[in-house]
């Protein structure tokens, strides 16, 4: 399989605090990886760095064969990003928001693409409604439609299930599973591993900015992952403790 993402010795420092230290990560076409870790483990820092929102202090990233430091626009054209915030303008309608992002990505046939993505996330009947009237679940679905608008090869999602009720989580997980089945590579941070384990290939655990474990997702089906996470935190109570 072709490599979509390759991060080598990725580190990010804020002042004197290392939020990310020497993280290696590889993602092949059509693969899905879940990032797991306690709050402050470095998941969001890793994802914002991969999403080109922050520059790594050290290390190298290659996405679709391009170095974001040298050709960020080429990288961004292949990447979709769903963040804590929706990145949507509340004063605009669902359709207007997507049309705006389609123009930023320089896409052709904007009306058709927007209509198609809105249909896929079940918002075609609310296309002309302003986002300010949307529930958290609807906003999240629209945010996913925004991220998928340009058919990205890589989808980066930071806590996509936050604030969603059970049906909302299920719908979003199903949508992501479909995207993965269509060949989109996915990397996501979540505290709700049970939502993604059925369709993720690997699970990467971060602790205090370091990658402490990387295993096939099937491993976590048979063990209690929440307990396992606590064990890891205890094992790596010193910053130097890294299991390989």
């Amino acid at each position: 399989m072709k490599g979509v993402l390759e991060a080598t010795k990725l580190s990010r420092r804020y002042g004197r605090f290392w939020a990310l230290r020497d993280v290696d990560l590889e993602l092949k076409a059509g693969e899905a990886v879940a990032l797991l870790g306690a709050n402050g483990a470095g998941k969001s820092t890793l994802l914002t760095t991969l999403a080109t929102l922050a520059r790594p202090t050290r290390g190298r990233i290659e996405i679709m064969g391009h170095d974001p430091g040298k050709g960020a626009a080429r990288v961004r054209a292949h990447m979709g990003y769903v963040a804590h915030h929706t990145l949507l303008d509340d004063a605009l309608s669902a359709r207007e928001n997507l049309a705006y992002y389609a123009a930023l990505f320089g896409l052709d046939d904007i009306d058709r693409r927007v209509h198609q993505r809105l249909s896929e996330v079940g918002l075609e009947r609310r296309a002309e409604d302003r986002v300010e009237g949307f529930s958290r679940g609807m906003r999240q679905r629209l945010s996913l439609a925004r991220a998928l608008l340009h058919d990205p090869s890589l989808l980066i999602l930071d806590e996509p299930f936050t604030g969603l009720d059970a049906p909302g989580c299920r719908d979003l997980a199903d949508r992501l599973r479909e995207e993965r089945a269509q060949g989109t590579s996915i990397i996501l941070a979540t505290h709700q591993l049970e939502r993604v384990l059925p369709w993720c290939d690997r699970v990467v655990i971060l602790h205090r900015g370091r990658k402490v474990e990387e295993s096939p997702a099937s491993t976590y089906d048979s063990i209690g992952w929440a307990g396992h996470l606590s064990e890891i935190a205890a094992d790596h109570s010193t910053p130097e403790g890294v299991r390989t």
Binding site: L104, F105, G106
Partner: peptide, 14 residues
């Protein structure tokens, strides 16, 4: 607000 700036940054727009 709602981090629209990140939306601009993560786009390949000139």
């Amino acid at each position: 607000q709602d981090d629209l700036v990140s939306g601009l940054i993560t786009s390949p727009a000139d």
